[in-house]
Design a protein around this nucleic acid. Structure first.
Length: 418
RNA sequence: GUGAGUGUAGCUCAGUUGGCAGAGCACUGGGUUGUGGCCUCAGUGGUCGCGGGUUCAAGUCCCGUCACUCACCCCA
């Protein structure tokens, strides 16, 4: 075996494709019910778009992007997420002029240079949805309701929805400052990771598994106490709507997002069955981002589903190759083979799925092959049949055999299908 | 970037104290001149991840390296 796929890049093999198609077509169906339109955007953008959108200091931008110069020297990057691209398209084509609220979804591969592990690879796939142009909280709860309904339709169970509010720039700033001050007092008790986190992302300290860090943040300031009236109202209305929609959730004040652009509502759905990478969807509101990217000052909210992760939870759904061919042609001898080969293609033109061996095999081998393929019927044509002008049509389930005139055998078989 | 574990047939895996490279499944053929599944017999298929070392002899022991897996970090 000479060549192997590049590290972190995986093949999706034929037996897995059915599950993938099911997840993606179900997403299209359900999102359609909610009035979402599909949009397809490039997998490469100017590197700067992601730096501006996601945040220069995030892990994603600072160390995980596939960035390179094209032949003209322009810095481009393979997208690590889809939202920045969707918003770029929204702004570039002035979709906000078409209708004030745009509900868009997109499906496709993302790229991040990370160490692969369970539930994480360098090329991975997401199903993204965004509601652009509404400040919420109706759009917040509708989006969350939609994704939970989608999971339910896929048969996913035992999911935990976490929600939180990160506040707006007005209330988040003071909170971060206060938290940093508090953590400084415990600096010596923090693990090296958390000493670093204190600067980069202080809220992460809450999630640290080290015991002393856990102790240190016991009495730390908490985000909900800092939310301004508008943000508090927004979040409380959201929880009311979710309760009204019968959606179970956990308010998790420590729920952070790794991308800088989030404001107010954030949410994440977790499962117990995937190991360490247990989030199957993450999302939230990003009210300042469109303006940041040069568009109008429109609010928006969106989510990203990890397709690999929901596919793994779905189990196998072999929708392709599930039922075998309608007819298997089993010719014996060169003349019969040549005739069957023509019939084979004409039967397919007539809408019948059918198969025939490329090789010349004995009848027994061909029957075994037909059986393996789960063919419903086999047309046996040997020298005797050619001279008689009548083939043998065997029903593989009932084992009944009957003669079939070969003059118009293709039309006859198509007619027999009813 | 850090740590641990695993690399033997297409797949799942045995391989003892260092002594001829194995099984099941899959594939091909026979048992049945031209009739599938079950059964039975046989066959095809191997750079034992790669490179070096120890040894009369290495899949097995030692060193290095690569890959995969899981975890940390972070995230979908």
């Amino acid at each position: 075996m000479q060549y192997k796929a590049v590290r972190g890049f995986k093949d999706i093999l034929p037996h897995q494709v059915g599950t993938w198609n099911r997840a993606e077509s179900e997403a299209k169906r359900i999102f359609g019910l909610f009035g979402f339109q599909e949009i397809r955007v490039p997998v490469i953008e100017k590197a700067e778009l992601f730096a501006r959108g996601i945040g220069q200091d995030t892990d994603i931008v600072s160390k995980e992007m596939y960035t390179f110069q094209d032949r003209k020297g322009t810095y481009v990057a393979m997208r690590p997420e889809a939202t920045a691209s969707v918003l770029r398209a929204y702004i570039e084509h002035k979709l906000y002029e078409v209708y004030p609220v745009q509900k868009l979804f997109t499906i496709g591969p993302m790229f991040r240079y990370e160490r692969p592990q369970k539930g994480r690879s360098r090329q991975f796939h997401q199903i993204n949805a965004e509601i652009i142009g509404d400040p919420g909280p109706k759009s917040d709860s509708e989006l969350i309701f939609m994704v939970m309904w989608f999971f339910s339709c896929l048969g996913l169970r035992d999911l935990i929805l976490n929600i939180n509010s990160l506040g707006c720039p007005r209330c988040r700033g003071p909170f971060r400052a206060e938290l940093k001050d508090y953590l400084k007092g415990y600096f010596a008790h923090l693990c090296p990771d958390c000493q670093r986190r204190m600067e980069t992302n202080p809220l992460r300290v809450f999630d640290c598994k080290v015991e002393t860090c856990h102790e240190a943040v016991k009495d730390a300031p908490s985000m909900p106490d800092f939310l301004c009236d508008n943000c508090t109202d927004h979040f409380e209305t959201l929880t009311l709507y979710l309760k009204g929609l019968d959606i179970d959730f956990v308010v998790n004040p420590h729920l952070m997002r790794g991308l800088d652009y989030y404001t107010r509502t954030t949410f994440e759905v977790q499962t117990q069955e995937l190991g360490a990478q247990n989030a199957i969807v993450g999302g939230g509101r990003y009210d300042g981002l469109i303006k940041e990217l040069g568009g109008p000052d429109n609010p928006a909210i969106g989510f990203a589903i990890g397709t690999e992760r929901i596919v793994e939870l779905s189990g196998e759904h072999p929708t392709q190759g599930e039922k075998g061919p309608d007819i298997f042609l089993a010719p014996l001898g060169k003349e019969a083979e040549d005739k069957s080969f023509i019939w084979l293609q004409e039967l397919r033109k007539g809408g019948l799925s059918c198969e025939m061996e490329y090789r010349s095999l004995g009848l027994k081998a061909q029957m075994r092959r037909a059986d393996r393929l789960k063919a419903r019927k086999v047309l046996i044509v040997g020298e005797d049949e050619l001279t008689k002008g009548k083939g043998i049509l065997r029903d593989m389930v009932s084992k009944e055999q009957r003669e079939l005139p070969l003059d118009h055998v293709v039309d006859e078989l198509i007619r027999l299908r009813e």
